[in-house]
Design a binder for these strands. Structure first.
Length: 445
RNA sequence: GCAGUCGUAGCUCAACUGGUUAGAGCACUCGCCUGUCACGCGAGAGGUUGCGGGUUCAAGUCCCGUCGACUGCGCCA
């Protein structure tokens, strides 16, 4: 007999079937035993009726056992139907149980309230929770929509290296290691330089890649290893071309999630983001304008700061929500002192670069800019930043041999997931998160 | 790295100003249960209160150190 999926059972009323699944819950009534069975497609109630030959094995089975069930699909007795549940009108009358894999005593029930630490220490088990499944189904769909949209726009996906010969940004701590003869190896903090080189090949490129930051931190919004969603496009006229592309992308992702993940958003009690009707580009303001606004409205003078504090980022998002009905807001024109060497200077706005951050529900989600594509100016900017152009000679070839005006952005997949779902800690949106204290460790016996 | 809060059973939490044998729910073991759906009922087992030191007649509770967690900050995505 061939295995069928639990979600297909409702079309098999009266038939004898085989399912293979996990035991979600067992409810032992003495002479009869109820189960909830779970597979990738859904759940269904099973019942072992009094006198059934399966009763003995049913008593032995525990939660999370992997089993094969031969049974008959019955309509539930009228008074026991559960209209609000999927498969609430049917049940599987269990005729035979085969235990495929036993589970040891469980540390806790899957639907227990858990501390974050416990949730992460028992990750292979806790990822089976309905809540965790919902989070990562949403993440799967974000990635799917990200790729789908960009491919439609002519972007090509490329694989960026994780092992690199130097640090791209100079702004963050880097993991170093010895292995290569005569060279220090580094784990990439960003695919930045590689996607710029790839603009010279395909004009429009994107990548989904793991990046590594050796900051000694453990916060609700940082990881030592995260997934960077990067895109880069050639022949742009201004950073606005990228901001428009990003706006369209996030609208596309949101629409895709509405279609595919409504149930998951409900489980997580999350709302879809507010997006102003018909927007071609999300609300935007220059950093200096934002700072003047904050200073005027809150009385705290932040106009001399080179950047926004997390508190002010949250304030601006509240403002954007009230004022523009938007959960997204672009902040542009950060000073060149705070931006990496490859960001193009904005001659019309003294001391700033053609860059932008996108804030989403209180958090910096994206950083992007138009790049300096003119070889001489790029080398000059490196020197100004205290970097040695010699060390970037590999990368600089792309600029020596002709590259169009271009720009792009990077966004953190885990941050995006966490903000979509209002998860307080980014680690909840990460399958196997790393921070200064956490790498998948052996649990002490 | 800094600051604040916290660390009690496998999990989630109690234990008033220091005061008898550190409790509960869930999970676990045994028994009962023919319509449950977080099934229910009864009994049982389960603890060096993170670790080390100190104060005290007496420490889960106060002090010092250490390890770990969470939140915030710095840095960033």
């Amino acid at each position: 007999m061939q295995r069928i999926m639990i979600s297909d059972l409702s079309s098999k009323k009266g038939e004898e079937v085989l399912i293979k699944c996990w035991v979600d819950v067992r409810r032992d009534q003495g002479k009869m035993v109820f189960f909830d069975f779970r597979d990738m497609s859904g759940k269904v109630q099973g019942v072992v009726l009094p006198g059934s030959s399966a009763i003995e094995i049913a008593k032995e089975v525990r939660d999370e056992f992997v089993v094969a069930i031969k049974g008959k699909v019955n309509e539930r007795p009228e008074r026991n139907r559960q209209a609000d549940k999927i498969n609430g009108d049917i049940e599987l009358e269990v005729l035979e149980i085969e235990i495929i894999t036993k589970a040891q005593d469980l540390p806790f029930a899957l639907d227990s309230e858990l501390n974050l630490d416990t949730l992460l220490d028992y990750r292979p088990y806790t990822l089976r929770r309905a809540r965790e499944q919902a989070i990562f189904k949403v993440q799967h769909n974000i990635l799917l929509a990200f790729r789908e949209f960009l491919i439609q726009k002519g972007f090509k996906e490329f694989r960026a290296p994780a092992i690199v010969g130097g640090d791209a940004e100079g702004g963050t701590e880097v993991f170093k290691f010895d292995y290569f003869y005569g060279h220090t190896g580094y784990l990439a903090t960003s695919p930045q330089l590689y996607k710029q080189m790839m603009v010279g090949v395909f004009e429009r490129v994107f990548t989904v890649t793991n990046v590594f930051r050796a900051e000694k931190h453990s916060t609700a919004r940082h990881l030592n290893e995260y997934t960077s969603l990067d895109l880069e496009m050639g022949f742009i006229d201004s950073p606005k071309d990228i901001m428009k592309m990003e706006t369209e992308l996030l609208i596309y992702v949101t629409a895709h999630l509405k279609k595919t993940c409504a149930e998951e958003f409900k489980i997580l009690e999350a709302n879809f983001p507010l997006i102003p009707e018909g927007s071609e580009i999300f609300p935007m303001m220059k950093l200096s304008e934002a700072q003047q606004l904050i200073t005027k409205e809150t009385g705290v003078d932040c106009t001399q700061e080179p950047d926004l504090s997390p508190e002010h980022e949250r304030w601006l998002c509240e403002y954007s929500k009230k004022e523009f009905n938007s959960d997204f807001i672009f902040i542009t024109n950060y000073p060149r002192t705070k931006r990496p060497f490859y960001a193009m200077d904005d001659e019309e706005n003294d001391g700033t670069t053609k860059c932008f951050d996108l804030l989403f529900r209180g958090l910096e989600l994206i950083s992007g800019n138009q790049r300096e594509h003119r070889y001489d100016l790029l080398v000059e900017k490196m020197k100004w930043k205290g970097l040695d152009p010699e060390k970037f000679s590999f990368y600089l070839q792309a600029f020596k041999y002709g590259i169009p005006p271009h720009g792009g952005l990077g966004m953190g997949l885990e941050r995006l997931t966490a903000r979509f779902l209002n998860l307080p800690n980014i680690k909840e949106a990460t399958l196997f998160p790393r921070d200064i204290n956490r790498i998948d460790k052996l649990l002490s016996e």
